[in-house]
Design a protein around this nucleic acid. Structure first.
Lengths: 343, 343
DNA sequence: GGTTAGCACTCGACCACCGAGAGTGCTAAG
DNA sequence: CTTAGCACTCTCGGTGGTCGAGTGCTAACC
């Protein structure tokens, strides 16, 4: 696997070609590579190297007598073997640390929003962030009365993640009904995966007394914010403006609309990444989505109790991998540290 | 003002021209209008009418020997005097009513998300929704302990809107500290506009005891979801894919990125609309934003207690005004009815 | 044998040009 | 006032020609 028999020189040429292409967004000519000091070769020799790289599908020519551009496979090799993640600069690190400080005890939705902002600001790319969500096992559910007719529901997961929502009640619901509803909920749901909550509620609530049933109905209405099993609704993104600036999307911007639109899709794309590595990279067609064939994804994950939060940078396959990987990696570790998880 | 002295015939021609242009997205020729049964005139006569409309800037020619397209002013006249809002069909009405049912007691953020989904589904356009937000006066603030180290904060406004957020606390915070913090918060903030909350907290928290201060700090960290004065963060949108399909944006899609990106901007654009009318229309350059010069906006509002929620459809100036106005109007009234407000 | 210079070849970008077609403006007659 | 007729203008698509970038090949060179 490692290198697929690429010689030292071929690797070097491939690296230079990719880095030049990332800078210029245009096909790279043999002479452009030959003029690099690191390669003391003539353009003719470079061409023969390019020819061999092309035969093995690391690069391709958009048309005869054009320069070469990397294929997905070329980028993959670059990412796996040729590049070194670039750690964020000091000022960037302090921007990250400063942006995260003070959030350690906050609702994870808020942290996720902040993360997408930080990433897109620094990366200058579209950034997506998926909060840990209520994934996992329900630990307890509280129902707390506020003023008459209003209550707060809070679900705490074994992972420590808490979701809250305000519900409105008819006036005939007493505090004792609320208490009874809370007791029932804990009895039914404690130790259960949150994914099952909706089904359980629907099946069991028929037997409850009318006022209790009313409370449960109100919870069901709010389920999209409260009892989402995975990373359903909790997708945040920031930096849409950046992705439109890339010349590769100037022609068909329509696919970008589809991507931005569906949070389910985004969650799926980002969520499919590995959780054992800090950073996962998906290049071009490695991505299952048709609309993302020409984009790459750098996904980082962080652990909060039993849940996993994720952040990703989305851009053209021609993206600044070393910088972005370094950025996402740093942020992942910072968040892991912040929430006390070890890998 | 009314009509700016347009004759009956001119109005009719303008209406037909606009409706044809909305259908075809292309300049409308005199013969296309003349061939309409409602206008028993020759194309030559229509041309002289068009000429007079053009002199008064209701329409323009993209270039000599092309058909005419409406100007912003033309659309404005159409919207104000020539069109009649088209009430949603029966199936659409039931889609709206069904989509909203069961949400009457829920957090307004959730309702707003659902609204943007409903509108974009039916309108087939980009739909934006701004939740009523915590605008207005603080009525009370509750801090409720959950499991050790976790608490829920709930802010209830005079308007009845409630916002909740979960906060994490160091273990050295006792329940009594929480109670003291709640007392202080109510003392400081009750009757105050929520916009002032952040400033008040920052100024006063220095005097509090360390554990209480910790609670207040946690609240400040969560302020973006909790104590937002207006419609700060609570912007939802849906249907980005639709706006990319319009031929007018095929060339320069970049401006769309800017619009989708900044929630502040969106909130500003949508929020600037009148609250006395059910529906406000902004056409092209009537919009303060440079990037929206070629777009129109149909904004509806609904009242919840003292707060105002809003929804809007965003599309090219060439949009289906009667249909969209009818839709937004219906939804606004439905929401007003649901939350018991009268206009 | 690997490397290089030289040269012919290919292809896209750009421009000018042309003809067809759409649509107008003008004018004179109804 | 309306209309038919006609000349005029402008866009659009296709064609041909030039230019330059970049390659592939080959023969000479180290």
């Amino acid at each position: 696997m490692a290198g697929v028999d690429l010689s030292e020189r071929e690797q070097k040429v491939l690296r230079l070609l990719i880095e030049a292409h990332v800078r210029t967004a245009r096909p790279v000519s043999s002479s452009a590579i030959a003029s690099d000091r690191a390669i003391p070769l003539s353009s003719a020799t470079v061409r023969s190297v390019l020819r061999s790289l092309e035969e093995r599908k690391f690069i391709l020519q958009p048309h005869t007598s054009a320069g070469r551009i990397p294929t997905d496979r070329g980028y993959r090799h670059y990412v796996d073997f040729l590049m070194k993640p670039a750690a964020p600069s000091g000022s960037e690190r302090s921007a990250i640390d400063g942006g995260l400080s003070g959030f350690s005890g906050t609702d994870h939705e808020i942290v996720a929003t902040e993360i997408s902002r930080i990433v897109s600001d620094l990366a200058k790319e579209l950034a997506v962030s998926v909060a840990p969500g209520a994934a996992g096992i329900v630990d307890r559910i509280d129902l707390v009365p506020l003023s008459p007719g209003r209550a707060v529901a809070a679900a705490t997961m074994r992972s420590g993640v808490t979701r809250t929502v305000a519900i409105a009640l008819e006036s005939d619901v007493e505090n004792s009904d609320l208490g009874e509803a809370a007791c029932l909920l804990n009895e039914w749901l404690r130790g259960e995966p949150v994914a099952a909550a909706e089904t359980v509620l629907l099946r069991r609530m028929r037997r409850a007394s009318p006022p209790v049933r009313q409370v449960l109905r109100a919870l069901l209405a709010a389920r999209s914010q409260f009892l989402t099993p995975g990373e359903g609704q909790s997708v945040h993104y920031e930096g849409a403006r950046y992705i439109f600036r890339h010349p590769e999307f100037a022609s068909d911007a329509a696919c970008l609309g589809d991507i931005l639109d569906s949070e389910e899709t985004l969650a799926e794309v980002v969520g499919g990444a590995s959780t054992t590595r800090a950073v996962t990279i998906r290049i071009g067609r490695e991505n299952p989505l048709r609309g993302m064939r020409r984009m790459s994804l750098v996904v980082g994950s962080y652990r909060v109790g039993g849940g996993v939060g994720r952040m990703a940078v989305i851009g053209p396959t021609r993206m600044k991998y070393p910088r972005l990987v370094g950025l996402v990696e740093y942020l992942s570790r910072a968040l892991d540290g912040m929430f006390g998880a070890k890998r």
